[in-house]
Nucleic acid binder design. Sequence first.
DNA 1: TTTGATGCAAACTTTTTGCAGCTAC
DNA 2: GTAGCTGCAAAAAGTTTGCATCAAA
Lengths: 136, 136
Amino acid sequence: MASELTFDALLRENGLRATPQRAIVIEALMELSHPDADAIFGYAQERQPSMSLATVYNVLDKLRGAGLVHMLDLHGRRYFDVRLEHHDHVHCRQCGQLADVNRPFGTRLVVPQLTAWQIDDQALIWEGLCPECQQG
Amino acid sequence: MASELTFDALLRENGLRATPQRAIVIEALMELSHPDADAIFGYAQERQPSMSLATVYNVLDKLRGAGLVHMLDLHGRRYFDVRLEHHDHVHCRQCGQLADVNRPFGTRLVVPQLTAWQIDDQALIWEGLCPECQQG
DNA sequence: TTTGATGCAAACTTTTTGCAGCTAC
DNA sequence: GTAGCTGCAAAAAGTTTGCATCAAA
């Protein structure tokens, strides 16, 4: 299958072994919108029932280490994202829905084009290393 | 104690019963920087050893419901914050330290004045109600 | 007196870990 | 063949829940 060859290449380019489980996780990340580990697990089981949840976590960890995947902490769960260009997210407080918002990095922050949404809060978190940890 | 009277007033103004446990949680939130439930519990136990962790969660929930406290989901934990004016956060990927960044709501997004920090990512999340949930 | 909060313990959810066996390279 | 990955099961970590008791109003 052509797409599997692509997954293989993607993995190997990033110094990771190409395994069927990893291909399935990447496929799940591309098919589903901001899935959590459990949603990926569900997707994976339809394709390879023997696949375990621990493997999903392992694979996500590796992909994240290679910079292929972003992680989003929200209401006590972790959501994963393969879109690597910079973008923001809107989160529905009620149904939990998570959607992308396009805003190029460094551009002006304005009330979003999300006229249909009712926005009432905004959280911006910078990630990096504090002065102390840069020395270790 | 004067400060307890203040806590009492704050609680009652927001329609909440004033209990010693709630006063302690508010005090902890003001003393500690972005504590999680466990840090608040530790602080509380030094002052009233009988106080339980479940009560900490209960109180935080009530305070949050009254809009007195903000919650921050980060690396699988929940951090709490009583500074209610709009501000952002910097998070150290290594030691987990969380610090405030002042940036008035709606102002231009620039590389922060945090010259000492080494920033490598930024996450912006809008919170609100999606179109569907506004009808419920 | 009544309504709502607390404390305790147990349950639940999500994520992590250890290890034996298997597989990609 | 060897390093590294997978699957399983158990444990850990954080949060939630149910219920009897207690305190604020």
